[in-house]
Structures are given as C-alpha cells and as structure tokens.
Design a protein around this nucleic acid. Structure first.
Length: 574
RNA sequence: CGGUGAUUAGCGCAGCUUGGUAGCGCACUUGGUUUGGGUCCAAGGGGUCGCAAGUUCGAAUCUUGCAUCACCGACCA
C-alpha cells in the first residue's frame, strides 16, 4: 500500500475526551473515529488490526474443532421471553419494534439464537458434541460507555457455544477451549492471565475470565504469591479467621460523635484504627419471589469493602444489589446514614467474617450523632448471620491454602462458562440418546472481546511516540520510508523496487510516498506503530545500504539493498 | 439514574464577567523556502457560535427550556 492511496489520518493533537492511552492513540493513529457515544467507525488501519485479531481467533477455534456460523444481530423478543432474559435483562438490552410493532432486540449475546438453532438441527446423540462459533457485532446499551472501543456499546465479539450429552463431555470441551484461548493470547503476543470468575448474568457454574494485565484495567484480579491460584476479586473468597475471637474486655458505652459519619471521621474521633470500627450498610431486601422487600443490614470491618457479587447471592438480599433510600434507613434504624449499627436493629443482619471476629469494637448507635464503643458480638448483639461478603485485600491468605494474595488490574478480554442446562432446559433443546431416551443438552459458552483486544494490546504496547504493535497484529508489517524521494533520482527506483519485492515475498508493506518532510514521516509511522521500518536515504546509497529500524526495540542497523527482503523475512518468521 | 462541567472552523481552544459586524494555534489550498526527526515566509478558503424560545434598537455574550458530549458517583452507613 502506498500512503498516497491510503487513508492514514493521523492527528497531532490528542482529542480532549480520550482518557486512556489506547483510546488516545487509536484516535491519533487514525484507527477509529467516534460516531456517537460508544459507537466507532473503524478506519483502514484499525480495521486491519481488528481483522488480524479475528483471523487468529478463527484459526485457533477451527483447530479445536469449532465450526463457524453467523447469526443475526437483530433477534426476536419471543426467544428471550422463552429463556426468561427479556425480563431479567435491564436497560442495557436495546429493545426495538419493527413496522408491525413486533418486539425485537439488538443482540448483546446469542445464547437464545444458538439454542433455537441447535434444538431444530440437532436431534440425535450421534451429532454431539458440537461447538459452533461466530464473529459478530454485539450491542449493549452501556450505562457509561468509555475508554473508546474498550467499553463501547457496539463491539465485535467472538462467541462460541458447545452442546453435550454429559457434564464430562462439556468439561473436556471446556478444557480444550481454555487451551485454545491461551494459544490465542500467546499468538497475539499479550501478557495475560486466566482467572476464576463469577458467572454473572449469563448463568452457569464453572467459569474463567482471561485478563490482559494493564494498569488501566477496570477489573481487580487477585493472585496467590505461591501457587497458581488467580481469580477476579468478585469471586475471590475471603477466608474466615482461623483463630478464636478475643474475649470481651470492655463494657458497652455510648459516646457522642456529632457530625462524624465516615469511618475515617469516626475512627479519628474515637482514636481507634478503622479496623476496630464496623460499618453497617442497609440494602434492599428480597422476599421469597425475589421481589423487593424491606431492608437487610450488611456489616463489614471499617477498612474493608463490600463485595456486591457475594452479597447479592443471599436469597434475602435483592438482586441487583441496591442501597436503601434515606427514607428506608430512617424507618429501619431511626437515624440517618452514618450512625447505623447492628445493636437493637430489627432487620436481618449479615456480618462479614472479619467483622464478626472483632471484640470491643465501635459501631453506630442508630441515633444521629452517637456511636457505641466496647461493643461485643453475642453479648450486645444477637441474631445475626456470619458470611463472606467483603472484597479480599492484599496480604489476605489465599483461598487455595498456599501463600498470600496480591492484587493487579486487568482488562477482561475473554470469558468461558460451563452453562449447564440453563438455556437448553428453558428452551427445550435435547436429543434422543442411544437408548432412545430424551436428554436435555448441556451447554458451554465462550466469548472473546475482539475489538477490546485491539485496545488492550495498545495499553500493553506503547511508548511516548505511539503504538508498538506486536508483529502478529500490526496493520502493516513493514514500512518503507524514502527520505526526500522527490528530490532524488536514485531513491524512487530503489524504493519502488523494494516495495515490489517485499510484496512479492508476501510482506504487508506500507510505502510512504508522500511528499512530506522526514520528521513528519518518522512521527506518523512511529505513531501508527509499524514494527519494521526501512529508511532509504541518499547518504547511505553510496555504500549500497539502507537503514533498518525496529519499532519495538528501537535498534537500528544498516543492510545491503539486495539483502533487505531476506532480512525482513527472517524478522517476520522469527 | 444522580452530581459537575462542556458545546464557537476538520481538531485543540480564546472571546461571554461589562451585549455593538467572530478570533488564535494546528490542519487544508496556492506560491516560495527548507530537506535524515512534526522548517520558515507570504497569500487564501472555511463558522446561521448545539437547538428552540425569550429580554433588547442590537445576543456567541443575559434568561428559560431541550438536546448532545464528557468527567465523577454505594464503600456513607
């Protein structure tokens, strides 16, 4: 490709609404342009990268026996009513109507459609197992789209769905897919980790997420420092203290804490450390049907954070987790937020293990401007349930029993689930077995955020000049930069020849034939991040050499003109 | 959804307080100059100032409503 026939579209200045580096660089390097909130046009360079990621994903899917299909973006509502998700999904499901007023939706995922397909096409155990995948546009009407294509509303995803007769068969495919995912991220050249994960709204049992490690990641992932254990913080279990709770020493006392609401204010006033104070959070409760009903108190140590995912799992806690309104707090605790405590609180109380381990602690007095000190469980508070409802923190013991936990940030780029029969049962997808018995199918589902990977790769591979693509997904592998070609009678021939030879050798090469100053060309190419650069200038031609520059390492060397093609090929296959 | 802020040329911004014929930098066009790291000089094109209503002789500027965009947001119990 010649730049004169291409749309390079680089920007000198950083658009003001881009916060994360990948978003800034994708705009500046001319990869994407925003059309509306969370909606992006892919420009030629961006699309090339996207296609390469897709291609690697396809090749690895095909290798483990998955078969490609393509399902519609627009899906009929009745399928989602059948699975129950029409009601279950919130406003992030974009619902639309056609000209006949029939309800449809823009697919955020395709479990329903694939299950509908499979229940019609698969009727015998002999056709199992089967693993179908697609690379398709998804739409999720995110509350807050941000970070460019990292959290866009419309995005490209590879989603695969496997169907089995037995759990064991599902487990086997799940392991193959796990390995395929590792192969994909290895080939992409990214630093990543598979971690144990919560299954969220998709449902199911076993689940792993694949995270690309990056400071800007939206997820916290925890690792054991001395084992293979890794999990999303949503999922990571906080172990209960192993020793006996200390005995009560102090007696209960009510102290005035006017206008002290936060844990920090209260602990400073009482001259206690935050881990000797507990906080009591009131959330909306749930009745037996899962409908909103009353409030529930969640009690945590002052220095700990609530884990919403864990809390939501309690049947008497409303899901999604919702904090009680000021009026509901007033009614339940007879005070305002900031002074709530579990003493004489007549709502269900769930206490985190580490809060339940405290003795002689402080808590709100359910009276504005007052706290209790010297509080002790059982002596002062009865009728509570103890559970794990907090986020783990660095230094906690690992749930696997070995080592302590570290926390890093990650970008979720893949997620695999063992779904079980959630959809196949709701949608009656089954086959006849060898004995002629009807059996419900067991499902797995496996997603990869293809467009998100592009952004994640940049988060991990950039410097102050721009993007440093891993060769596997660079928009071009090689760039030819002729210095002042328009003023030279030797350079045009050499550059053109090299361009043709490299193309014939199968290289993806960008030939910068613009009539630009060298500085402009260098800066653009470094911004775009092409890994291998050949600089052709008059000053080297007398020796019959050109300069090679590596974008990743910054290394330069001179190469004889007639050896360039071999040299580049060796770099690309290395 | 709540809070805050923004919306003026393709991009980044000033002008608004104190109403009076719309500016700067980058980009773009033309000519010259320069030529291995975002040259310099000159000339030029491009904006119903987000939309709608109001106040006024006169509104980018003041008022109201709407729209769009961005940032922050349970951790306070």
């Amino acid at each position: 490709m010649r730049t004169s026939n291409y749309l390079l579209s680089t920007l000198k200045e950083t658009p003001s609404d881009a916060e994360v580096i990948s978003h800034q660089l994708m705009l500046r390097a001319g990869m994407i342009r925003k059309l509306a909130s969370g909606l992006y046009t892919w420009l030629p360079s961006g699309l090339k990268v996207l296609r390469k990621v897709e291609q690697i994903v396809r090749e690895e899917m095909d290798k483990v026996g998955a078969i490609e299909v393509l399902m519609p973006v627009v899906q009929p509502a009745d399928l989602w009513q059948e699975s129950g998700r029409w009601e279950q999904f919130g406003p992030e499901l974009l619902r639309i109507k056609d000209r006949h007023e029939r309800p449809f939706l823009l697919g955020p995922t395709h479990e329903e459609v694939i299950t509908e397909l499979v229940r019609k096409e698969i009727s015998s155990y002999k056709q199992l197992p089967i693993n179908l995948y697609q690379v398709q546009t998804k739409f999720r009407d995110e509350v807050r789209p941000r970070f460019g294509v990292m959290r866009a509303r419309e995005f490209t995803m590879k989603d695969a769905y496997s169907f089995h007769l037995t759990e064991a068969c599902l487990e086997s495919t799940y392991q193959k897919m796990h390995q395929a995912y590792c192969n994909i991220f290895d080939r992409l050249g990214l630093e990543y980790r598979p971690v144990l994960a919560d299954t969220g709204s998709i449902g199911g049992s076993t689940s792993h997420e694949f995270h690309v490690l990056a400071e800007s990641g939206e997820d916290a992932i925890v690792f054991s420092d001395s084992s293979e254990y890794a999990a999303n913080i949503e999922k990571a279990e906080a172990l209960a203290p192993q020793t006996e709770r200390p005995a009560a020493q102090k007696s209960l006392a009510k102290v005035a804490t006017p206008n002290k609401h936060t844990i920090e204010e209260v602990s400073n006033t009482l001259e206690l450390s935050p881990n000797q104070v507990i906080k009591t959070l009131l959330v909306v409760g749930a009745d037996e049907e899962g409908q909103e009903s009353g409030v529930v108190a969640l009690v945590l140590r002052g220095d700990h954070e609530l884990n919403e995912v864990k809390a939501e799992k309690f049947p008497n806690v409303f899901s999604p987790l919702t904090f009680a309104s000021d009026e509901a707090i007033k009614e339940a605790a007879n005070c305002s937020a900031g002074s709530i405590g579990p003493i004489n609180l007549s709502v269900p109380i769930i206490v985190d293990h580490s809060a339940a381990y405290l003795a002689d602690f402080a808590c709100g007095a359910n009276e504005d401007g007052f706290h209790f000190t010297g509080v002790n469980w059982d002596r002062d508070i009865q009728g509570y349930q103890v559970a794990d409802i907090r986020n783990v923190v660095e230094g906690d013991p690992s749930p696997c029993g070995n080592g302590v936990l570290n926390i890093k940030r990650g970008i979720e780029v893949g997620h695999i689930f063992q779904l079980g029969t959630k959809y196949s049962e709701a949608m009656k997808a089954g086959v006849l077995t060898e004995t002629g018995k009807h059996e419900t199918l067991t499902m797995g589902c496996y997603g990869i955020g293809v467009s998100r990977i592009v952004a994640a790769a940049i988060e991990q591979n950039h410097d102050k000049y721009g993007i440093k693509w891993p060769t596997a997904i660079a928009p071009f592998q090689v760039c030819i930069l002729p210095m002042n070609m328009h003023k030279s009678h030797r350079i045009p021939d050499i550059a053109n020849n090299l361009y043709q030879e490299l193309q014939q050798a199968g290289c993806e090469v960008l030939f910068d034939d613009r009539k630009e100053r060298p500085g402009v060309m260098f800066n653009d190419i470094e911004l775009v991040g092409i890994p291998h650069v050949i600089v052709i200038g008059e000053r080297n031609l007398d020796e019959g050499v050109v300069e090679y520059k590596n974008r990743q390492t910054g290394d330069k060397e001179t190469i004889k003109i007639d050896e360039v093609v071999n040299f580049i090929q060796s770099k690309l296959t290395a």
